[in-house]
Deep mutational scan, measured.
Amino acid sequence: VGDQVLEIVPSNEEQIKNLLQLEAQEHLQLDFWKSPTTPGETAHVRVPFVNVQAVKVFLESQGIAYSIMIED
């Protein structure tokens, strides 16, 4: 199991704000291929294997929908 690319769908401005804060966490080494800008629009982010669980827990705790787009 390696890195994953998640497709994330924020449903409101609050969730977009939370994702932008997540993007700013440099220690997570997230690679946003497509940043969140509009509710209902997908964002794509590559998550290093060591941080996959932490990111998924965060998304679930914020009620942000996501799916695994690419499993490496």
Rank of each mutant, 00 (worst) to 15 (best):
V1Q: 15
V1S: 13
V1I: 07
V1W: 12
V1R: 14
G2A: 07
G2I: 10
D3V: 11
D3I: 10
D3A: 13
D3L: 08
Q4G: 04
Q4I: 15
Q4Y: 15
Q4W: 15
Q4A: 12
Q4N: 05
V5C: 15
L6H: 00
L6Y: 05
L6T: 00
L6S: 01
L6A: 01
L6F: 15
E7H: 15
E7Q: 12
I8K: 01
V9N: 08
V9F: 13
P10L: 08
P10S: 02
P10W: 04
S11E: 13
N12E: 03
N12L: 02
E13V: 10
E13Y: 14
E13G: 06
E13C: 13
E14D: 09
E14F: 06
E14V: 06
Q15F: 01
Q15Y: 01
Q15L: 01
Q15S: 03
I16R: 04
I16M: 06
K17H: 09
K17L: 12
K17A: 10
N18G: 12
N18D: 09
N18P: 02
N18R: 11
N18H: 13
L19N: 00
L19D: 00
L19R: 00
L20I: 09
L20V: 07
L20E: 05
L20G: 05
L20P: 01
Q21M: 12
Q21F: 14
Q21V: 11
L22A: 04
L22N: 02
L22G: 03
L22M: 05
E23T: 10
Q25I: 09
Q25P: 02
E26Y: 14
E26H: 13
H27D: 11
H27I: 08
H27T: 06
L28A: 03
Q29L: 08
Q29R: 09
Q29M: 10
L30S: 03
L30F: 04
L30D: 01
L30P: 01
L30G: 02
D31M: 12
D31T: 13
F32A: 02
F32K: 02
W33M: 14
W33D: 10
W33Y: 14
K34Y: 06
K34P: 07
S35A: 12
S35N: 08
T37A: 06
T37V: 07
T37N: 06
T37Y: 06
T37D: 05
T37S: 12
T37I: 09
T38R: 07
T38I: 13
T38C: 08
T38D: 06
P39C: 04
P39S: 04
P39M: 05
G40K: 04
G40W: 06
G40I: 02
G40D: 03
E41D: 08
T42P: 15
T42D: 02
T42A: 12
A43C: 15
A43N: 05
H44N: 05
H44S: 09
V45T: 01
V45Y: 02
V45F: 03
V47Q: 00
V47C: 03
P48S: 07
P48M: 04
P48W: 03
F49H: 13
F49T: 10
F49A: 15
F49V: 11
F49I: 12
V50S: 11
V50Q: 13
V50Y: 10
N51L: 08
V52K: 03
V52T: 06
Q53E: 14
Q53M: 11
Q53C: 11
Q53R: 07
A54C: 08
A54V: 12
V55R: 00
V57W: 13
F58N: 01
F58H: 04
L59W: 01
L59Y: 01
E60H: 06
E60W: 03
E60N: 07
E60M: 06
E60R: 04
S61A: 13
S61W: 05
S61P: 00
S61T: 11
Q62F: 15
Q62L: 12
Q62P: 00
Q62G: 05
G63C: 05
I64V: 03
I64W: 01
A65H: 14
A65T: 10
Y66S: 01
Y66D: 00
Y66K: 00
Y66E: 00
Y66P: 00
S67N: 08
S67M: 08
S67L: 06
S67R: 09
I68D: 04
I68F: 05
M69H: 11
M69F: 11
I70G: 13
I70W: 13
I70H: 11
E71W: 09
E71K: 08
E71F: 07
E71L: 06
D72P: 10
